[in-house]
């Protein structure tokens, strides 16, 4: 500002101009690089082997069995407390399956992993030969236990349901906590936290209900 504008031809390129140009260029290139790299980072979720995708898939399978058992017990008992709990579990977990399925859709990740469940938690083997079945997932009721539940009624069915669901929920809480240590995704964290808290409180409720029925 203090100097007059010089119109004299310049022989050498001014150092300050060059520095500004280099700085600007670096800025533009930096922004461009960030633009190019960001989607790549974000698409990490789309990876079929990411913990988020594994959790969404396996928790969906896990939830589906809880829904099935909850629907079963509602057909097998008239006890209002158990029926209400079962209604809560069936509707809540169906809804959560929908949420997790929508994530997988959004991430473009497959809804199943034919190599077997729980690999994101470090369980089971890789490759086809040792692929574990869904019933090998922690807390899942075996086909025989499900048949026993279908065959029982009244108090016996309630006790069996409560035992199976407590085991099921405990594993569910563990899975939810496992993904919390493996993900930075906020929507995954939010749902996993709510699952862990809700299922933990239902475990306490079911333990009380079981004690009432076993003691009698």
């Amino acid at each position: 500002m203090t100097e007059p504008v010089v119109t004299r031809p310049v022989v050498t390129r001014p150092a300050r101009g060059r520095r500004a140009a280099v700085l600007l260029a670096a800025l533009v290139l930096g922004v461009a690089a960030a633009l190019a790299v960001l989607p790549l980072l974000r698409s990490g979720h789309a990876d079929a082997d990411s913990p988020e995708a594994g959790f969404a898939r396996d928790m969906s399978t896990h939830h589906a069995q809880a829904v099935r058992m909850a629907m079963d017990i509602r057909d097998r008992t008239g006890d209002q407390a158990v029926r209400t709990l079962a209604y809560d579990i069936a509707t809540t977990q169906s809804q959560q399956i929908g949420m997790m399925t929508a994530w997988l859709d959004e991430w473009g990740a497959p809804k199943t992993d034919p190599r077997g469940p729980m690999r994101w938690m470090g369980h089971a083997g890789h490759g086809g030969a040792q692929a574990a079945g869904a019933e090998s997932m922690p807390g899942m009721a075996t086909p025989a236990q499900l048949r026993a539940l279908d065959a029982a009624s009244g108090r016996a069915a309630e006790v069996l349901f409560l035992r199976l669901m407590i085991t099921h929920h405990r594993a569910g809480v563990e899975m939810a906590k496992a993904v919390l240590t493996r993900t930075g995704d906020e929507q995954v964290q939010r749902l996993a936290r709510s699952m862990a808290a809700a299922q933990q409180s239902e475990i306490t409720l079911m333990e009380g209900m079981l004690a009432e029925r076993s003691a009698a």
Partner: peptide, 20 residues
């Protein structure tokens, strides 16, 4: 110089778009 920088920026944006 700035044309080259601009082209790189455009290429990056197009690449990013294709990635998404």
């Amino acid at each position: 110089f700035f044309t080259a920088v601009g082209l790189v920026a455009v290429a990056a944006v197009v690449f990013a778009f294709l990635q998404t």
